[in-house]
């Protein structure tokens, strides 16, 4: 992209990281501000190095949860990068994204959304429509829209992101399961309960296949066990397999653990909603044991 952070700024950045990681913001902030002043004197305000320095200082504020201050600095950095690097530069897309994140952290989803959309347009133009970074941007956009209740758009963005992740990174990539979970939460809001249920089952089945290689009578994903227990409880033929074995199933299944745990709980909640209490308890027990 034609710009490289000069060595002295890298050193300064690393030093600032050290101070910030120790919580010594009273050192980090003045250090950044002095460097900014010096840079502006030597290079002028509209220089990519100044944008870099503004970015570094913005991170220091961000890490203190001072999102408004961080956004102010990033806005300035954005303006400089647009002027000096070009409006479609990847650094401009990244800055737009990060501004959107800062607005999102403050609950300003309506303001964040157009920034995120602009970042998406640039990424699609530069990287192509099916790049994993485009999927990341779609995911951020979906999250912002979901917090505004725009579920039709959310569904579209998550579906696109999912297609990209599956095609480019494969079905076992952690982003696939995370996006399916998010899409399922959107489906729930839309009343598409069956679609949500299917996604949760897909996640658990994929985790199962990754660990055990197949689905057959001897190796069933946990949700199949849960539904069988539900059926048996209705016919009063109790399955003697103790719950702890399902915790064992889960422990053996280390893929995407937090996501799989969330999925177990979400599908359990869905079962509960459907009155399938035995099935719900099976998954809830499994989720609890694996936490």
């Amino acid at each position: 992209g034609g710009y490289e952070i000069p060595a002295r700024l890298r050193t300064l950045h690393n030093l600032v990281i050290q101070y910030a990681s120790q919580g010594r913001y009273e050192v980090a902030v003045p250090l950044c501000k002095q460097a900014l002043e010096d840079l502006e004197k030597t290079s002028g305000h509209d220089h990519p190095d100044v944008a870099t320095m503004l970015n570094i200082l913005a991170l220091v504020y961000r890490d203190q949860n001072k999102y408004k201050e961080a956004a102010h600095l990033l806005n300035d950095a954005l303006s400089i990068r647009e002027k000096t690097l070009g409006k479609d530069h990847p650094a401009v897309a990244a800055t737009l994204n990060n501004l959107a994140v800062l607005y999102g952290k403050r609950g300003k989803y309506r303001e964040a959304e157009p920034l995120c959309k602009r970042a998406l347009e640039i990424r699609e133009k530069v990287l192509g429509k099916d790049h994993p970074d485009v999927a990341k941007q779609l995911n951020n956009l979906a999250l912002l829209c979901q917090n505004q209740g725009k579920y039709d758009e959310v569904e579209y963005y998550y579906c696109r992101a999912l297609e990209i992740y599956q095609a480019r990174l494969g079905p076992d990539d952690p982003n696939v399961a995370k996006t399916k979970n998010n899409l399922a939460s959107c489906y729930l809001k839309q009343g598409k309960f069956k679609a949500a249920e299917q996604l949760y089952k897909d996640i658990l089945t994929q985790a199962h296949v990754k660990e055990f290689g197949s689905v057959d009578d001897d190796h069933k994903p946990i949700w199949m066990h849960a539904e069988e227990r539900e059926e048996m409880s209705k016919t009063s033929h109790n399955d003697s397999t103790p719950y702890s074995e399902y915790g064992g199933w889960y422990k053996a299944c280390r893929v995407n653990s937090p996501t799989v745990n969330t999925t177990l709980r979400n599908l359990g909640a869905l079962y509960r909603r459907q009155g399938k209490l035995e099935a719900a308890e099976t998954l809830e027990e499994c989720a609890m044991r694996s936490r």
Binding site: T52, N55, I56, P90, A91, A94, N98, G107, N139, N147
Partner: peptide, 20 residues
């Protein structure tokens, strides 16, 4: 509200402007 907060936490930062 909790779900909104969870989604806020999922927003992904882009570090590429400061990677080298």
């Amino acid at each position: 509200d909790q779900q909104n907060v969870n989604r806020q936490q999922q927003l992904e930062w882009d570090d590429s402007t400061l990677t080298y």
